[in-house]
Simulated scan of single mutants.
Amino acid sequence: MIKREAGIFLVVGGLTVLIDFCIYRLLLWTGMVDVATAKTIGFLAGTVFAYVANRIWTFGHTRSGGNIVRFVLLYASTLGVNVFINSALLHLAGRSQTGIAAAFVLATGCSAVLNFLGMKFFVFKPSAQAIPK
């Protein structure tokens, strides 16, 4: 079960990043908004997709209930972890191209693992009725 969920989670994560990037680039290409606004809109669109896709596809929840609040708390927390790890690694490794890439990959990897665990056991945890006795 967890291998299937992890696989789907990775697909959803890839699609989330793709949605973020495409909307960001489209908004910049059209010149409709400035860079910060384009990035914000792209990120938010990806986040909405991630919530819905993970809720329905990855973890099989058909009703949202209070999950949205837990989702926002989780993503805010893991964003903080991501930024902290990225900053700490840049401080240790320096700002060379290799250092920047390594810090980004490690920070993203850590936050992805925390997001998966948080979604599985906190955001979309099985209800008491769904757990077999």
Rank of each mutant, 00 (worst) to 15 (best):
Ala93Asp: 03
Leu26Phe: 14
Val123Gly: 08
Val48Tyr: 00
Asn86Trp: 08
Glu5Tyr: 06
Phe43Ile: 12
Phe84Trp: 15
Ile2Ser: 05
Thr108Gly: 00
Cys110Arg: 01
Thr30Tyr: 01
Phe71Thr: 01
Gly46Cys: 05
Val83Ser: 11
Phe9Leu: 02
Gly94Ser: 05
Asn115Phe: 02
Ala101Glu: 03
Phe49Ala: 01
Gly65Thr: 06
Ser64Glu: 10
Phe84Tyr: 15
Arg4Met: 08
Phe59Trp: 03
Ile100Ala: 07
Thr58Glu: 11
Thr108Ile: 03
Leu117Trp: 13
Gly65Asn: 08
Gly13Asp: 06
Thr37Leu: 12
Pro126Ile: 08
Phe59Asn: 02
Thr58Val: 14
Phe121Glu: 09
Val72Asn: 06
Asn115Gly: 06
Leu74Gln: 12
Thr62Gly: 14
Val105Ile: 15
Phe124Cys: 00
Ala130Tyr: 00
Met32Thr: 13
Ile8Lys: 15
Gly60Val: 04
Phe9Ala: 03
Gly60Met: 03
Arg63Gly: 09
Ile41Trp: 04
Phe124Asn: 00
Ser127Met: 05
Ala93Leu: 15
Phe121Val: 07
Thr58Lys: 07
Asn86Ala: 05
Ser127Arg: 08
Gly66Glu: 10
Leu74Gly: 12
Ala102Tyr: 10
Ala45Asn: 03
Leu90Asn: 02
Val113Leu: 12
Val69Trp: 06
Gly99Tyr: 06
Thr62Gln: 10
Met1Ala: 13
Leu117Gln: 07
Val113Asn: 03
Ile131Lys: 14
Thr98Asn: 08
Asn86Met: 12
Lys133Ile: 13
Arg95Ser: 15
Leu92Asn: 03
Gly42Gln: 08
Leu15Lys: 01
Gln97Lys: 09
Gln129Cys: 03
Ser77Trp: 09
Ile23Thr: 05
Thr62Tyr: 09
Met1Trp: 13
Ile23Asn: 02
Arg55Gly: 09
